[in-house]
């Protein structure tokens, strides 16, 4: 897991949050985890395929998710319904999409899969044995958003170049 993959996601997350939520996120200290793991209640998972492959997970607490969804929809939401879930998933999709554009500028071509929303705590995603780098972002009064990036260069199987 190269640290160079982190910067585009952090930059995209900051840009998208600024534009969508009107708040400038404050970036916390980068952390490493041996695997993709989240203890947050609401998680958006986006698959990345291309020159780099893996998963990116955006984790946030239930109350932060509701506050963000309310800000995105433009009305106070008290129940995490389908519209709130869709808004949160779209936030992950926009960050991932913008990150893919920034990666492309570095010559790393990749595509993203539609976001999946996972609710529940202590989620460990063990389909990939790739360490994860974690960027915590503070979103002012809205709460915090944790960006977990677990990517690796595309593996060439059987010694064949793709």
């Amino acid at each position: 897991m190269k640290v160079q993959y982190v910067a585009p996601f952090a930059e995209a997350a900051i840009n998208v949050c600024q534009m969508v939520l009107g708040t400038t996120p404050e970036r916390g200290q980068l952390a490493a985890r041996p695997q993709l793991f989240t203890s947050e209640q609401v998680n958006i998972v986006c698959g990345i395929v291309g020159n780099v492959e893996g998963l990116v997970l955006y984790g946030l607490s239930g109350s932060t998710a509701l506050r963000i969804a309310s800000a995105m929809v433009g009305q106070k939401m008290v129940i995490f319904d389908q519209l709130a879930a869709s808004a949160i998933a779209e936030l992950g999709n926009m960050i991932s999409g913008n990150s893919a554009s920034l990666l492309a500028q570095q010559g790393i071509k990749c595509d993203i899969t539609p976001p999946t929303l996972i609710r529940g705590t202590k989620v460990k995603i063990s389909t990939l044995d790739i360490p994860a780098l974690v960027v915590p972002l503070k979103l002012g009064d809205l709460g915090s958003l944790e960006v977990n990036i677990s990517l690796q260069e595309r593996q060439h199987h059987n010694g064949l170049a793709a």
Binding site: E90, A100, S101, K109
Partner: peptide
């Protein structure tokens, strides 16, 4: 109207017949 705004993606869309491209957000 997509979050994927890289040049390749825009070109593919235009080649497929799209007339314009708006990046989300």
């Amino acid at each position: 109207v997509s979050a994927m705004g890289q040049k390749d993606m825009v070109l593919q869309a235009i080649q497929a017949g799209a007339r314009d491209f708006l990046i989300k957000p």
